[in-house]
Amino acid sequence: MTTSNPTVTHLPARRNTVRTNRTLQKVGVWVSLLLGAAFAGLPILWMVSSSFKDNSEIFAWPPKLITENFSFAAYTSVFTDPVKVRFFVNSYVIAITVTVLTLVVAILAAYAFSRFEFRGKALVNVVIVGIQAVPPITLLIPYFGLIVALRLYNTYQGLVLTYMVFTLPYAIVMMTGYFNTLPRELDEAARVDGTSSFGALWRILVPISMPGIVSVAVYTFMIAWNEYLFALTLTRTDNMRTVPIGIQLLMGQHSYEWSEMMAMSVLGSIPVLVLFVFFQKFFIGGMTAGAVKN
C-alpha cells in the first residue's frame, strides 16, 4: 500500500500518505483488538454478570448486563451450602496434592534426563511424549476396573493417582527443559566438593529453579483443577465430587439454578485466573516451552 507509487509522488505528499496509512492501520488494529476482546471477553463478562442476578432475571428480555437488583444471593447460597463448599474443598485438596506429588516425581525424573546419560534415554523420552496422545477415554475403562480392584473407587487417592498420568508428562518435559537451561558447572562444582548427586539437586538446582518449578506447579494445578472425565466416572457420592462435576449436578436437579451455577463457575475460575495473573510470565514461558519445544 505504502509503496504502490513511490516514484511519482512528491516528498511532502508521500509523507502525508504514509501518515494517513499509519493512522488507518492503527484504526484497523484497534477495531480488530476490540472485536477480538468482545469475542473472548463478553461471554465471561456475561457469566460474571449473571452470577449477580436473581434466577428469575437470567432470561430477562431485553437482557441486561447490569441488573438493578444486583445481589450476592447466589454466592451466599453457594457458601452456606455444605455440599457445594465440599466440592471446592475436594477440588483444592486434589489439585494441591496432585501438584505436590507431580513436582517431586517430575523434578527427580527431569534431573535424570538433564544431567545423566543412560541406556534407553531416547526411548523413555519418546514414551513420555507419546503418553500425551493417549485418549483419556481409552485409559478410563481399565482404570475403572483397576480403581475398583484397589478399593480406590470414590476416594481422593483414586483421583490423585489417575490425574498424575496427565500431569507428569508435561511436568517432566517442562522441568527437563528448565534444567537444561542451567549450566552443568553449577551442580558439578558441588559434586566435586563431595556433595552427593541428590544433594546437588536438592541444595543447588532446586533453589535456583524456582521460576521453572512455579510454572510447572501452575500448569499442573490447572490440569488437575479442570479435569472432568475421571472425576465424573471414578467418584459416586456428593462428598467426593469436584467443582466441574458439582456445577453439572446443579443443572437439572430441580430446575436450572442459573445464577448459582454462574456463581460457582466464577468461584471455580478464580484459582486458575489468579494463578495466571500472578505468574503470567512463567505460565506462558513454561507453556510454550512445554508444548512447542519438547
Partner: peptide, 20 residues
C-alpha cells in the same frame, strides 16, 4: 490477558456458560 481468558476456564464451566 483478555484474549487468553477462554483457555483458562474449566471445560465444564465453558459448557455451562455456553448453554446459558
Amino acid at each position: 490477558t483478555i484474549f487468553v481468558m477462554p483457555w483458562l476456564l474449566t471445560v465444564a464451566i465453558i459448557a455451562i456458560l455456553w448453554r446459558l
